[in-house]
Computed example of a mutant assay.
Amino acid sequence: MEFIVDSLEDTMNLGKQLGNIVHPGDIICLTGDLGTGKTHFTKGIAEGLEISSPITSPTFTIVNEYEGRLKLYHFDVYRVNDPDEIEAIGFDEYIFSDAVSIIEWANYIEDLIPKEHIWVEIKKVPELGINFRKIIIQYYGDRYSYIKELK
């Protein structure tokens, strides 16, 4: 599925739609260059999960935890130099729980991502304008077929 957005608000609204329909234990992988809107997409998901705490990128802590309708684990693996580093924090225990896990820069640890997951790629579309983004959402595994509900 592909979506074109032209503002942070639209990016967050698409994330919120996803947050409204995710299930316990879902894994959402986010990729895209710096400044494409991965954290704003995450803020939208958190809003859909009814999380009232401010969402910040866990660049230096690797994972932040939030409580809402479902628990959220928000990972940022941009600074992870070795997959063993992410395993050392108990990565499997986080992602194989009843919480929703969002992993920014998931392409850095692709070998650790379970086969069933949602993959979201956010790309700048400069030919349309400075704020335009293409958000490509793919899912792997039957459990995620509900993604077809996004509009």
Rank of each mutant, 00 (worst) to 15 (best):
F3D: 03
V5I: 15
V5L: 14
S7K: 06
E9W: 02
E9S: 07
D10R: 03
T11V: 15
L14K: 11
K16Y: 05
K16N: 14
L18E: 07
G19L: 03
N20I: 06
N20S: 04
N20H: 06
V22Q: 01
V22N: 06
H23W: 08
G25M: 02
D26N: 06
I27R: 13
I27K: 03
I28Q: 06
I28E: 07
C29K: 09
L30T: 00
G32F: 13
G37I: 11
T39H: 06
T39C: 00
H40A: 15
F41D: 10
T42R: 01
G44H: 11
I45V: 15
I45A: 01
A46N: 10
L49N: 10
E50K: 14
S52N: 05
S52G: 00
S53E: 15
I55Y: 01
T56P: 06
T56M: 14
S57P: 09
P58H: 04
T61E: 07
V63N: 04
N64M: 09
N64D: 01
Y66V: 13
E67V: 10
E67Y: 10
E67M: 14
G68S: 07
L72I: 05
Y73H: 14
Y73K: 10
H74A: 07
Y78L: 08
Y78R: 02
R79H: 09
V80A: 00
V80D: 08
P83T: 06
P83M: 08
E85R: 07
E85I: 05
A88H: 13
D92G: 02
E93T: 01
Y94C: 02
I95A: 03
I95F: 03
F96E: 13
S97M: 06
A99I: 02
V100S: 03
S101W: 05
I103G: 09
I103W: 03
Y108F: 12
Y108T: 04
I109T: 04
D111R: 15
L112D: 01
L112G: 05
I113F: 02
I113L: 05
P114E: 11
P114D: 04
K115T: 14
E116V: 06
H117E: 14
I118Y: 07
I118M: 09
V120R: 03
V120F: 01
E121H: 14
I122Y: 01
K123E: 10
K124T: 05
P126V: 04
E127H: 10
E127C: 03
L128T: 03
G129N: 07
I130S: 13
F132W: 05
R133C: 00
I135C: 04
I136A: 15
I137R: 12
I137T: 05
Y139H: 15
Y140L: 12
Y140K: 15
D142R: 14
R143E: 14
Y144K: 08
S145W: 02
Y146A: 09
I147Q: 14
K151R: 10
